[in-house]
């Protein structure tokens, strides 16, 4: 496949998986040595370049909200009624994913394709490079299913080319005349004894939430 196919594949990934306007419930399980240490459940709403997460469970964390307003990331703490700006690279709720991993809106905005798509062990390898050095992971490798072009695995690489994190798309469910990942695992290469599993349910395409829903002012309501 040539460069044009690679760019098309990136756009396909971005459009169908990352920048799709949608609502879903996300369950996040943090495991250590295969034992679940913490579980969170949250309502996620994505619209344009914005994304908001409302924690539903555990009840002690209920109403904690996280927002990517397109420019910054914010967290609302209901108990102290405080709104804090959160850094992109901080671990999301203490798991193996960073805030940026969870709240990423668009791949195309941050990355560009390098080289052609390669055939590796029966899978397609799409290599992406960050457009600038501000992006946390300088390179991302997508391993795609040869037939469906759906991602199977995603490697996040450091500036020196070493794998820092691996995201595995374990299960897919039917969604909007296609498929959408329903179970995703994030593995931190520096903490191989721990992993974070995300399970997506109640998926619906589009959202009726207005732009006001994605403002910091609305987080406290």
């Amino acid at each position: 496949m040539d460069q044009a196919d690679s760019s098309g594949m990136l756009e396909h990934l971005d459009k169908n998986f990352f920048s799709l306007d949608m609502e879903f419930v996300m369950k996040m399980e943090i495991l250590k040595n295969e034992n679940v240490k913490r579980t969170y459940e949250m309502q996620v709403v994505k619209k344009d370049e914005k994304m908001r997460l409302d924690i539903l469970r555990p009840s002690i964390e209920r109403d904690r909200r996280v927002l990517n307003d397109g420019d910054n990331m914010w967290m609302y703490l209901p108990r102290s009624s405080k709104l804090i700006k959160i850094p992109y690279k901080q671990a999301f709720l203490g798991g193996d994913a960073s805030n940026r991993d969870i709240l990423r809106i668009s791949l195309v905005e941050d990355y560009e394709v390098i080289g052609d798509v390669e055939n590796v062990d029966g899978e397609l390898l799409l290599k992406l490079k960050a457009k600038d050095l501000k992006t946390a992971y300088n390179q991302v490798n997508f391993y795609l299913d040869k037939k469906t072009k759906y991602p199977i695995k995603q490697e996040m690489l450091s500036l020196s080319g070493k794998v820092i994190k691996t995201i595995e798309y374990v299960e897919y469910i039917e969604f909007d005349q296609g498929y959408f990942p329903s179970r995703v695992t994030i593995l931190d290469q520096l903490r191989k004894d721990s992993k974070t599993i995300f399970t997506y349910t109640d998926l619906s395409k589009g959202t009726d939430k207005t732009d006001a829903f994605f403002t910091t002012a609305s987080l406290s309501k």
Binding site: K89, A130, D132, L133, K134, T135, A136, Y137, N138, S158, L159, S160, K162, I164, L190
Partner: peptide, 13 residues
């Protein structure tokens, strides 16, 4: 593992 001066992550052995 470090954060480079620009913000990206870098790692080596």
């Amino acid at each position: 593992l470090v954060q480079t001066v620009n913000g990206s992550l870098n790692m080596d052995d």
